[in-house]
Design a protein around this nucleic acid. Structure first.
Ligand code: SF4
Ligand code: SF4
Lengths: 162, 162
DNA sequence: GCAAATAGGGATATCGTTTATCCGTAATAG
DNA sequence: CTATTACGGATAAACGATATCCCTATTTGC
C-alpha cells in the first residue's frame, strides 16, 4: 500500500505556488520542468487540485495556477485528499456475513469492531495531516533550504510566472 | 491507496484463533470456510503471520495454526504489518534533486520537510494500531456479537480444531 | 482578427501490484 | 502406509498507477 507519486508532486507544487506574488500564475510546463516530472501526467494532479478548489487557473499565454487560499488556510490533508481521494484506506468486505453459523436473514446493525479500529487509525493519519498547514511547510523550508538555492529558485519561478 | 483484503482476513483469523483452547490448532481449510474466502489465497496471509512469528503451526492431520502469544501481547499493528509490510506508505522520490537551480554536486543532508510530515502521519496511523490489542477486539466482539451466534461459532470452531 | 500558449478532459498504452489458482515437497497423526 | 496439513514456487487474471497523445475551448499579445 503506497501513496501515488502525484501526492509528492502536488505538495511540492503547492509549496512553489505559495511563493508566487499575488495575482501571478505559474504554468504546468514550468512546474513540470522545475520538478523534473512528465508535464502531461503532472497536469492530471494539478487538475485534481483545481477540481478540489485548492487552486485557481487561467487560460492562455501567461496562464497557469495560483493558490485559491492563503497558505495558512491550506492543510496537507487538503492536498493529499485532492489527489489521493477521501476514501478510507481500509475497506470492509463484510466477510462476517459468510459465517456458516449465522441465522438466515440476520442483519448487521453496524460496522464491526475490526473495521472501526482500522478506521480510527485512518482518522489518526488524517488528523495529523490536517494539523499541518502549507504555511508551516514554507516556514520549515525557508529555514532548511540554503539561502542561495532558495533565492535562485524564487527568481527562476518569477521569470516564468505570468 | 487501499489496504490488502488479506489484512481484514488476518485480523479475523487472529480473532478466531484467540478463542481456541490451549494447545489446539485450526487449519487453513476451516478458517477459509468460516470466512468464506479462497483457501489457497488465505494460506498466503497465514504464512505471513507465521513468518512474522505471530502464530505457531503444526503439520499433518489435526495440524494448523494457533497464536504464538496471548491476545494481550498481540496488537493490531503486529498483524497489519505482518501482512502489509513495514514499509512507509509515503515514498520520497527526491524530486527536489531535479531543481534546475541546484549547484552541481549539491547533496541533501536529510529528508526534506514534506517527507517528514508525511512520515509523521504514517507513524500516527501505526501508533493508533499499536495501541489496540487483540484482547481489546475480543472484548468488544464478546459484547456486540449476539450470544447465540457467538456460542454457535465457538462450537463450530471447536468441532474442527485439531 | 490572428497566432501562440494554456487548462481541461477523453482515449489509450504500459507497468506493477493485488488477487487467485495450481502443484510439488516435507512433515505428521492415526 | 495413507490421509492431511503447512509451505513455497510458478503462473495467470484483474486491477490500479503511471504515462502519453490528441482534441477543444479560452485567453493573451500582437
Ligand atoms: S468483522 Fe468488521 S471488518 Fe470484518 S467483515 Fe465484518 S464488518 Fe468487515
Ligand atoms: S522535498 Fe522531500 S518529499 Fe519532495 S523530493 Fe525532496 S525529500 Fe522527497
Amino acid at each position: 500500500m503506497i501513496l501515488k507519486s502525484q501526492v509528492e508532486w502536488a505538495l511540492h507544487c503547492c509549496a512553489i505556488l505559495a511563493g508566487l506574488p499575488k495575482g501571478r500564475y505559474l504554468s504546468t510546463k514550468a512546474l513540470a520542468e522545475f520538478h523534473g516530472v512528465p508535464k502531461e501526467y503532472l497536469s492530471k494532479a494539478l487538475q485534481s487540485l483545481s477540481q478540489a478548489g485548492l487552486v485557481h487557473t487561467t487560460l492562455g499565454p501567461s496562464g497557469g495556477y495560483r493558490l485559491a487560499r492563503t497558505p495558512d488556510e491550506l492543510t496537507f490533508l487538503d492536498i493529499v485528499e485532492a489527489v489521493e481521494g477521501k476514501a478510507r484506506t481500509f475497506v470492509c468486505n463484510n466477510i462476517r456475513a459468510n459465517n456458516p453459523c449465522r441465522p438466515q436473514g440476520y442483519c448487521e446493525s453496524a460496522p464491526c469492531a475490526v473495521a472501526r479500529v482500522m478506521w480510527e487509525a485512518d482518522e489518526a493519519w488524517r488528523e495529523k495531516l490536517r494539523s499541518v498547514q502549507l504555511s508551516d511547510l514554507i516556514d520549515t523550508l525557508a529555514k532548511e533550504v540554503p539561502a542561495e538555492l532558495w533565492k535562485k529558485s524564487f527568481e527562476w519561478v518569477l521569470e516564468r510566472a505570468g
